[in-house]
């Protein structure tokens, strides 16, 4: 592509004030509030994914006569490595936005 085309496009992008690569604007009074906001959205997503899967699984188990709801209620699982890793990944996804906050400036984007 010719350079003139790219230069004109770049000028138009810059005039809009797009956040640069790796820059995350904050809209709320402090970056921490933005990150907390994001964490809540992430948490809601994780919650719904698990709830949706559990509903499907319990429904299948029950309809096939394999496990009754009260058996699930009373079951205890061994503490496997895979389970620990899943929990670790969940905590990372949820709290990573808060960690990211520490490297951001306190200047409001708006």
């Amino acid at each position: 592509m010719n350079t003139k085309h790219d230069e004109l496009s770049r000028a138009q992008v810059e005039s809009i004030g797009l956040p640069g690569p790796g820059e995350e604007p904050h809209f709320l009074p402090h970056p921490l509030m933005d990150r907390l906001f994001e964490a809540v959205i992430v948490l809601g997503g994780e919650l719904w994914i698990e709830r949706d899967r559990r509903r499907a699984l319990e429904s299948l188990l029950h309809s096939k006569g394999i496990v009754a709801p009260e058996e699930i209620e009373n079951h205890s699982e061994a503490d496997t490595e895979e389970r620990k890793q899943e929990l670790s990944a969940l905590v990372n996804r949820l709290l990573d936005p808060l960690r990211t906050m520490q490297s951001e400036s306190g200047t409001a984007a708006t």
């Binding site: 904050h26 009074p29 959205i41 708006t110």
Partner: peptide, 11 residues
């Protein structure tokens, strides 16, 4: 407005 923008972008 601040919260709406955050919600839209994060979503």
């Amino acid at each position: 407005v601040q919260g709406w923008k955050r919600l839209m972008r994060s979503q």
